[in-house]
Amino acid sequence: MITKMTITNIHVLNQDSAYDFYVNKLGFKLVDDIPMGPESRWLTVSPPEQPDLQLVLFPVTVSKIFPKDVAETLIGLIKKGIFGCGVLTCNDIFATYEELKAKGVEFIKAPTKEFYGTEALFKDDSGNYFSLQPLNNFGNENSI
C-alpha cells in the first residue's frame, strides 16, 4: 500500500538561481545541498511545514540523463511555461500573494475566485508554474 509521496523532481535551469527562489523567496527549507563531484550537486528543499516531502531541484543540463536534443527540448518547454508543478497551500492567500509579489515573484494570475475556490498562479525562476491556494479554500478566504 502506498502511503506517501516523499521525493519529487522540479526540473530547473540553474540550481543557484533555483536555490535563491525556493529558499529565499518562497521560504522553503533547505534539506540537502551535497556536492557530488565538480559539476553535480544534490539539492533538495521542503515546504516549510512539510519536512517529509523533498523537492529535488533537478538541473536540466546536457548529461548522461539528458542527451543534447532532450535537454534543449526540455529547456525550451520549461522556458515557455508549459509545466505546472502542483498546488502550494498557504494559510492566507492574500498575504502570501502580497509577500511574494514584494519579493519579486512573477504572478501570472492574481488571487481570483473560481468555482473551486480562490487561486493564484505564479512562476518559478525557470518558468515552471504553481497554483497557490488557501488551506481552507471553501470557507471565508479573506481572513482579516
Partner: peptide
C-alpha cells in the same frame, strides 16, 4: 483581483512581517 477586500490592511501587515 488586485483590489481584493482589505488590500490596504494586508499590505501593511505584510510590510511589517518583511520588516
Amino acid at each position: 483581483m488586485e483590489q481584493y477586500p482589505k488590500v490596504y490592511l494586508y499590505r501593511r501587515i505584510v510590510q511589517a512581517k518583511l520588516f
